[in-house]
């Protein structure tokens, strides 16, 4: 089964960098989808979501329109059940953000920008999504 990767970040250069990284480290086999704010990613999920598919969202916190927290508040865990995983990828090194992230069941990880080869390899070992890379 393929893992659809959504990269959500208002920094265009970061979305490009992360795209290159997830492709290079083979986190996804189909090209990742890039979104410049939470609202665009949410609209995509609400209209295109397929329960047969699995989604991995690499989510920035600090974004205009709909920020990372608002995006998390808007995705109902019941609807996306076990098919949607979120990894927060932020430039923040603020520990309160890390604690807040833990309160969302969909969040399976919290990484600091930039995503490097090592962080991508680490993503592949996260228990909830490791089976995709076995």
């Amino acid at each position: 089964m393929n893992l659809n990767v959504l990269i959500v970040d208002d920094d265009k250069m970061i979305t490009l960098l992360h795209k290159v990284m997830v492709v290079k480290t083979k986190i996804c086999t189909t090209p990742p989808l890039l979104f410049s704010d939470g609202k665009m990613a949410l609209e995509f999920l609400l209209s295109e979501y397929n329960p047969e598919e699995r989604y991995l969202v690499l989510l920035d916190i600090n974004m205009p329109v709909l920020n990372g927290w608002e995006f998390l508040d808007s995705i109902q865990p019941e609807r996306f059940a076990n098919n949607l995983f979120v990894i927060i990828v932020t430039s923040s090194v603020d520990s309160s953000d890390k604690l807040k992230a833990k309160t969302y069941p969909q969040v399976i990880g919290f990484l600091e920008k930039p995503l490097r080869s090592e962080s991508c390899e680490f993503i592949k070992t996260m228990p909830s999504i490791a089976p995709f890379f076995a």
Partner: peptide, 21 residues
Amino acid sequence: AWIQSHVVRAPLARIMGLVDL
């Protein structure tokens, strides 16, 4: 402190990622 964490690290993270590439 908030600016340091969120705003300063943003371009810095970009530079780090670009240098990696």
